[in-house]
Simulated scan of single mutants.
Amino acid sequence: MRNPVKGLVMAATSALAFCVGGGPAFAADATQADAGTLSDGGKVTAVTLKAANCVSATILTFGATLWKLEAPDRDGKVADVLLAYDKLSDFEKTPNYWGATIGRYGNRIADGKFTLDGKTYQLPQNNNGQSLHGGGKGFDVQNWKLDSIKSGKVATAVFSLVSPDGDSGYPGTVKTKATYSLDESGNLQIVFDATTDKPTVLNMTNHAIFNMAGEGSERDAMTNVLTIPASKYTPVSKVLIPTGELRSVEGTPFDFRKGKPVSVGLRDGNDQQIVYGRGFDHNFALDKGQTKTPELAARLEDPVSGRVLELLTTEPGVQFYSGNFLDGTYIGKQGHLYRMGDGIALEPQKFPDSPNHANFPSTRVDPGKPYRHVMIYRVTTSPR
Rank of each mutant, 00 (worst) to 15 (best):
V5Y: 14
V5C: 11
V5R: 10
K6F: 10
K6W: 09
L8I: 01
L8A: 14
T13D: 15
A15F: 07
V20L: 14
G21C: 06
G21R: 10
A25H: 11
Q32Y: 04
A35S: 07
G36N: 03
L38G: 09
D40N: 14
V47M: 05
N53M: 10
N53D: 11
C54L: 08
T61M: 09
G63P: 03
T65G: 04
L66F: 05
L66K: 02
W67V: 08
A71G: 03
D73K: 07
D75R: 14
A79T: 12
V81W: 05
L83T: 00
Y85G: 02
K87Y: 11
S89D: 14
S89A: 15
D90S: 13
K93P: 00
P95G: 13
P95Y: 06
N96F: 09
Y97S: 11
N107V: 02
K113W: 05
F114Y: 12
T115K: 05
G118M: 00
T120V: 01
L123R: 03
P124R: 03
N128K: 13
L132N: 01
G134T: 03
G135P: 06
G135S: 07
F139D: 02
V141K: 11
D147H: 09
T156A: 11
A157H: 00
L161N: 09
L161Q: 10
V162M: 10
D167F: 08
D167Q: 12
S168A: 15
P171R: 07
P171N: 05
V174I: 15
A178N: 04
E184I: 03
E184L: 04
I190M: 12
T196V: 08
T200R: 08
M204Y: 09
E215Y: 08
G216F: 07
S217L: 04
R219D: 11
A221N: 10
T223E: 14
L226Q: 00
T227K: 12
I228N: 10
P235Q: 12
T243S: 05
V249I: 06
K260G: 00
V262Y: 04
V262W: 01
S263C: 06
S263G: 00
L266S: 13
L266Y: 12
Q272P: 06
Q273C: 03
G277W: 00
R278Q: 11
D281I: 06
D281Y: 07
D281R: 06
N283T: 12
A285S: 13
L286R: 04
K292M: 09
K292H: 08
A297G: 14
E301T: 15
P303M: 00
R307T: 04
V308D: 10
V308R: 15
E310G: 05
L312K: 14
G317V: 01
V318E: 01
Y321A: 04
S322P: 00
G323A: 09
L326G: 06
T329A: 11
T329D: 13
K333G: 08
G335T: 04
R339W: 00
R339Y: 06
R339G: 14
G343S: 14
Q349T: 14
R364Y: 02
R364P: 01
R364C: 03
D366I: 03
D366W: 04
P367V: 02
G368Q: 08
P370I: 07
P370W: 05
Y371L: 01
M375Y: 05
I376S: 02
Y377W: 15
P383H: 11
P383E: 13
